[in-house]
C-alpha cells in the first residue's frame, strides 16, 4: 500500500506522460542529458521539501489562502536551491541559468502540493514526491537522450562520452522546440497504444 504511493508516480501516474504536467521545463531543458539530470535534481529537492513541509502544516493552513502559502513555500525552496547551486555547483548553475527559477511555476510541484500533500500524512507525501521526481527524471532524461543523439550525433554526459559520434550531419531541428514536441508526442502515442491494446484483451 505504502509502496504504491512511491511507484504510482513512476509509471501509472507519470507526471509527464499521464498527468501531462510540467511540460514547460521539459521542452526547454531536455536538449542535453546533463542539463536534464541537473533539472531533475533541482525538481527532486524542491518537490520533496515542499511536499513534506506542506503536508506537515496542512492542518494550520486555511483553505482560503492555501495557494499563496504553497507558492511562497515553493518559491523559497527554489531560491535556496539556486543560491546554493550558484555557490557550490557554478558549472551547473551557469548551464541551467534561467530554467532554475522556472521550477517555481513547474505545475508538478504545485499540483502535488494541492492534490496530495495538503490532504495526506507526511510519510505518504514524502513517498509521493520521490515517486513523482523519479517519474519526471525518467521522462526528461529519456527525451533528452533521444534529442541529444539525434541533434548532435553523440551523447556526452559531464564531459564523458557515452555514445561516440556516429553521424556528421545530425538534425538541428531536434534541439529546437519542435524536436521536443515530436519526441513527447511519439512516446505518448506508444504508451497510449500499449495501454489501449492491454484494455482490448
Amino acid at each position: 500500500m505504502k509502496l504504491d504511493e512511491l511507484t504510482k508516480g513512476v509509471f501509472r501516474y507519470n507526471p509527464i506522460f499521464y498527468l501531462v504536467l510540467g511540460l514547460c521545463p521539459l521542452l526547454a531543458v531536455s536538449t542535453r542529458v546533463d542539463n536534464a539530470l541537473g533539472m531533475s535534481l533541482g525538481v527532486f529537492f524542491v518537490l520533496v521539501s515542499s511536499n513534506v513541509i506542506i503536508s506537515l502544516f496542512r492542518h494550520w493552513i486555511p483553505s482560503q489562502v492555501r495557494i499563496p502559502c504553497f507558492i511562497v513555500i515553493i518559491a523559497s525552496f527554489v531560491t535556496i536551491v539556486e543560491l546554493f547551486m550558484h555557490g557550490y555547483a557554478p558549472e551547473l548553475h551557469g548551464r541551467l541559468g534561467i530554467y532554475l527559477p522556472l521550477i517555481v511555476v513547474n505545475c508538478i510541484i504545485l499540483g502535488r502540493a494541492e492534490a496530495f500533500a495538503s490532504k495526506k500524512p507526511v510519510f505518504h507525501s514524502f513517498l509521493d514526491a520521490i515517486g513523482m521526481s523519479i517519474g519526471f527524471t525518467l521522462a526528461i532524461v529519456g527525451i533528452a537522450i533521444c534529442r541529444e543523439v539525434l541533434s548532435t550525433g553523440k551523447i556526452a554526459i559531464f564531459g564523458y562520452t557515452i555514445v561516440p559520434t556516429f553521424t556528421q550531419s545530425p538534425s538541428v531541428m531536434m534541439i529546437l522546440p519542435p524536436g521536443a514536441f515530436l519526441t513527447i508526442g511519439i512516446i505518448m502515442a506508444l504508451i497510449n497504444y500499449r495501454s489501449i491494446r492491454k484494455e482490448g484483451r
Binding site: T31, R32, R95, I98, Y99, S151, T152, I175, L176
Partner: peptide, 8 residues
C-alpha cells in the same frame, strides 16, 4: 556567463 538556449 550566458544563459542562451541550451544546446544552441
Amino acid at each position: 556567463s550566458q544563459s542562451e538556449t541550451p544546446g544552441l
